[in-house]
């Protein structure tokens, strides 16, 4: 047993876990932020232009919905490969942690768009109608009604998105990136050091738990409905 953990808990490995945690958080947080930068406007457009939305616009809704669905149905590993040329253009290289952000964002953005769309669609129709009866413009309804009313649900969506993105980070090792996931795969699969795999995974689980917990309590704290 001691032997089993000896290398896994050596000073060198501890330093690796430390840097892996930072890299994992870097990849997750940055790609989540960028996915939201793209996903929020997309989600808003999807919900607003829906036939029951505040500004129905069927062609825009159909085309955008189709693109989002296509992007969502490509398996991540394949998207990773397909995105390589784009990655090269955007980041200047096809490998490394930063290069890995491109497929992460590309896969998360449409997912985020759908989550934002569904959060906005949950907003009480009556409240929207009240705002319309007061002469609000569509933009005012989006900024002052839809987004603030959907905030608690959007925060929960954010936590879910982060967890999903975190689940993709082990694949960073396919493009020479690292992080907890990559370490777990490297050592668990290729070098047969299961102890390291378990410890790296444990850290991943802890990070997921923290993200979920923070997301839930933040959502509860901002929600004034209860």
């Amino acid at each position: 047993m001691r032997e089993f953990f000896e290398t896994a808990l050596s000073g060198q490995m501890l330093a690796l876990y430390g840097s892996d945690i930072l890299v994992t958080l870097y990849m997750t947080l940055v790609s989540t932020a960028m996915a939201y930068l793209i996903g929020i406007p997309l989600g808003i457009i999807l919900s607003v232009t829906d036939k029951d939305g505040i500004h129905p616009l069927s062609p825009v809704n159909k085309v955008l919905g189709f693109l989002v669905n296509v992007l969502r149905s490509v398996p991540f590993v394949i998207l990773l490969v397909m995105a390589l040329p784009l990655t090269k253009v955007l980041v200047g290289t096809k490998i490394g942690n930063t290069a890995f952000l491109v497929p992460l964002v590309l896969s998360a953005a449409p997912f985020v768009a759908r989550m934002v769309e569904s959060s906005i669609k949950e907003v009480d129709k009556g409240v929207i109608e009240a705002a319309q009866s007061m002469g609000s413009t569509d933009l005012q309804i989006i900024m002052k009604v839809l987004l603030p009313e959907a905030k608690p649900s959007l925060i929960i969506g954010g936590a879910i998105a982060m967890t999903t993105i975190l689940g993709y980070t082990p694949l960073a090792q396919l493009v020479g990136g690292n992080g907890l996931g990559a370490t777990a795969v490297q050592y668990g699969v290729y070098r047969f050091e299961p102890a390291i795999m378990y410890i790296a995974s444990l850290f991943l689980i802890i990070i997921v738990q923290i993200l979920q917990e923070v997301g839930m309590s933040l959502s509860k704290k901002t929600d004034k409905r209860i």
């Binding site: 009480d124 009556g126 409240v127 109608e129 007061m134 002052k144 009604v145 009313e149 905030k151 004034k224």
Partner: peptide
């Protein structure tokens, strides 16, 4: 031309005061 509803339709994430401020903000 204002309107009130059976289900009140107040903004749930705003206080009473902020709700009354809403139509003033948009104008």
């Amino acid at each position: 031309m204002s309107m009130i509803f059976q289900s009140f339709n107040l903004l749930s994430q705003r206080t009473a005061l902020q709700n009354v401020c809403f139509p003033l903000e948009i104008t």
